[in-house]
Design a protein around this nucleic acid. Structure first.
Lengths: 342, 342
DNA sequence: CTGAAAGCGCTTACAG
DNA sequence: CTGAAAGCGCTTACAG
């Protein structure tokens, strides 16, 4: 068999006895062809297994039908956080329905990340990007704004410049958690927070401080970390070595919470008897350990899908806004209980 | 400020006083321009921040400068396995040096996966693809072959049809592990394997059976699972409920090993006293738990980089071959010890 | 070494 | 409703 040239709209036009323009209109659901002609064209396209050349389409329509996602975390940490893969699968659910592709890039620094955006936009590789890990004073925002690259922030809702965002109410979730621990009888609680310059860390820290003060907690400190297990373990060790150690700890991710559980066991403390543990971003990991971890969870794929829809709307120049996803909900499991009387 | 049109080679040509063709040659390092002209063109391109339109380049060069990766795992499982993110970061290290992009797609079924390949290739979205999770009788192989879509298999080295592959010697790693457990004094060991229709599962199962027989193990059974924590826990419970329970278990991934550790603790068995645990695909997760897990690890980013290089060579029509990556190496930690005398 | 031109496969005004 | 044609921004033979 001779290697066949891939079919083009010219082939379809020839077989249907119409112009290439008519084929284009028919294929794209545009007006300009009669229903009968459209049917015929569609049937031929289907029959010969036609797929439009994305480069040709991109070149003439000035649209790439791809969106970009740059992830700036060390591979070591990226891999063990289920968050991103779940987010990605939600994003793709939305994209593939419209034949959009996702271009992914792992970057090391914010300079690299910004360079990737410039290159992608300059090359017309993507029609827009999704931004993660919003910072309090985020240098990406002005760059994106200047570039006029359509972008949606996953996070916020403040500090997003002119960009739309999708966000969930972390403060509310944290208040719910502190109230839950207070109701169990905890008076000394701590929090192992994520990277301190991330906006959502700031929001959570503030909510934690406010809620614990309001509820009459005698101590309520936040220790910063980088989401890695090692840092989570180190922070836990420091907290538990204190003579007035906390009876409950809230962790900003699942990985650190699991590391914290390991440290407690290593130090001979019973969970939940001596220490209650709450993990943010519930994931299957939380149910792998013993006891299973009480966790704050949300539908991350739905969050990603919302972000993708918002970005697609921005790309289509539809009026967009910032959207609030559902807040994280607390699922009590075996790692939380009233504190044992000293 | 007026929104500026993005610069094209025509702009550069005009400013340099040469033809577009000369600009193209200069930019792509082709012969056909004098060193002085090339310098001048490059300087102008740099100055005005020129990036070639990827669609135009793709259309005329019939190359997309992107490769595709379709991942077929439920989002739930994909997220908690560090393997893929580490693989991806290794792949990208190789791609970004050559300005190649990675197009990622999460799929649910093999039919969807094959449909994605057809569409990508039909649309000329990608120049080649990387294939994971090779099966014993893999329907993707003949499709890719027929499509003439350049592809490299991550896995093998057998059952890859005409495709090149990168692989590591799982059998050797498993033999090393069984020998290690035997040297510690274990006589009854078990294995919780991955999906049974994956080729590497088959290879590991065979090696496990052979090695344990050769070393005089009285019992050495493999239980199949799907890599999820729930299945790992269930398999562990079943194995440990046996009156002649194993004193050591090898798990095909980290997640199941951690779940198994949880089950042992739940059943009141000491690890490593009553049960030794070995995890495949060492990851930071293995050091999160207490005791830390003895694990088989390899440099996954390097594995991904090798795969990317091989695919790029295949795309460039360079002669390619299958490459063997380093085998997994065993890192003993706290979860393995001589079995306690019953 | 350089220029002029065709062509990649689409989309989209513009005429009929 | 349909056709003929220009144009998107590159690459690449083909002449000079």
């Amino acid at each position: 068999m001779i290697a066949m040239k891939r079919p083009t709209i010219a082939d379809i036009a020839q077989r249907a006895g119409v112009s290439k323009g008519a084929v284009s209109y028919a294929l794209n659901g545009q007006p300009g062809v009669s229903p009968a002609t459209r049917q015929r064209i569609l049937a031929i396209a289907e029959e010969i297994g036609f797929n439009p050349n994305s480069a040709a389409r991109a070149l003439s329509a000035a649209t790439s039908n791809a969106i970009g996602l740059a992830l700036r975390r060390p591979a070591r940490i990226l891999g063990i956080e289920p968050f991103f893969m779940e987010l990605i699968s939600g994003v793709e659910g939305e994209l593939s329905a419209r034949s959009y592709a996702l271009t992914l890039q792992v970057v090391a620094t914010v300079e690299d990340e910004v360079a990737v955006y410039r290159r992608w936009w300059g090359e017309r590789r993507v029609d827009g990007v999704l931004i993660c890990d919003l910072r309090v004073d985020d240098e990406r925002i002005p760059v994106l704004d200047k570039l006029q690259l359509p972008a949606v922030v996953i996070g916020g809702p403040t500090h997003t410049g002119n960009l739309s965002s999708v966000w969930s109410d972390d403060a509310a979730a944290l208040v719910e958690t502190v109230e839950y621990l207070a109701a169990l009888g905890h008076r000394r609680i701590a929090r192992v927070g994520g990277l301190p310059d991330l906006l959502h860390t700031e929001i959570r820290s503030q909510a934690f401080a406010d809620a614990s003060k309001r509820l009459g907690m005698t101590e309520a400190i936040t220790v910063s970390s980088d989401y890695s297990g090692e840092e989570g373990a180190r922070a836990t060790r420091r907290l538990l070595s204190n003579s007035r150690r906390p009876t409950g700890i809230i962790y900003d991710n699942d990985v650190m919470a699991i590391a914290g559980l390991g440290v407690a066991q290593e130090m001979g403390l019973a969970v939940p008897g001596d220490l209650s543990i709450v993990a943010w971003d519930d994931s299957p990991l939380c149910q792998l350990v013993h006891p299973a971890l009480t966790a704050l969870g949300r539908d991350i794929p739905a969050y990603g899908a919302l972000a993708a829809r918002t970005l697609l709307a921005a790309i289509a120049h539809e009026p967009t806004a910032s959207f609030q996803a559902e807040p994280s909900r607390l699922t009590p499991r075996g790692s939380t209980a009233p504190p044992r009387r000293a």
